[in-house]
Design a protein around this nucleic acid. Sequence first.
DNA 1: AATACGGGGAG
DNA 2: CTCCCAGTATT
Length: 350
Amino acid sequence: MNQFVPQIHLWYNRNFRDLPWRNTHDPYKIWISEIILQQTRVEQGKNYYLNFINRFPSLKHLAGASENEVLKLWQGLGYYSRARNLHQTARFIQNELQGKFPETYEDIIRLKGIGPYTGAAIASIAFGLPYPAIDGNVYRVLSRYFGISTPIDSGKAKKEFRELASGLLPPKNPGFHNQALMEFGALQCTPKSPNCKNCPVADSCFAYSEKQVEELPVKEKRTKQRKRYFYYFYIDDGKFTWLEKRTGNDIWKNLYQFPLLESDKELTDSEIGNLKNIPFLNGHSATVNKISKPVKHILSHQVIFATLIHVEIPSIKSLTDNLIKVEKNSISDFPVPRLIEILIKNAGDF
DNA sequence: AATACGGGGAG
DNA sequence: CTCCCAGTATT
């Protein structure tokens, strides 16, 4: 008789963290927490959750907000499509579904930003429906315990783990079970140096008995990075400066930044000083005041080398349409990527 | 099936 | 440095 599931449940009852989204069945709050926690550690997302719920206590509050404000609360968390989809979906539910959160798995995963994992998490935790929530933690735990070496980032693994996890799911309280398995992975069966010496299921764990804990789970794909060179212009316009909103399908969509000139290669200071025909300057000639040291900013698929160029432009009439004139001291009202925060901080007082 | 999408923390 | 985190959308 395999004691895996009951042991995990016992372990969870003794070791679970008291997290702010654990004391509710409100699908709205479960939803927010699950989106925030996508590819994000609990410790990183916790305060964002508290701030988010504080500002948007209900779906109606979120639906009524501007996208800028939603992105502002998301600032620094990354994967901003999560925030855009959250906002869009809140409006969809409010306007098209009479404000009522869908209550079946099939209806839940139709929502933008909700995939198989998040759909199962919401369905099980908020509505007690029997769907296995399989996140990175669960892949790791099951891979090790049952000795499955199928690469967890393959299509084959999706099906294989879903069938396995479905079979483990107890008929009652699947939400409890799902959280127990994830928490076990997050705290006990960790990626590096798992606590096997003090593990309730080590006896029957394949990886432990076969000494393959370090080898499992197997992952095959590796992301490669491309290099980009960003030259941002801090336009000194007295009390004002200028910002632009990022559009198009690139990083940081709908966030704001200083007017950007992107280059294929690194530019020298004299090349920067001699720049002519900078599109967004609209014919104005600029005096370069200061050029910051490049900041290296690492993303999962890109390495960005960013330089902030402080320029003075006498008597600005108008710049290109995509730029907006803002008071220098109101930059903080706009959602900006971490990189812009860093450049502002490095520059000190403007 | 492959790739893009952020940022942070652990080792 | 590398790995990976309560993954999803797009191509």
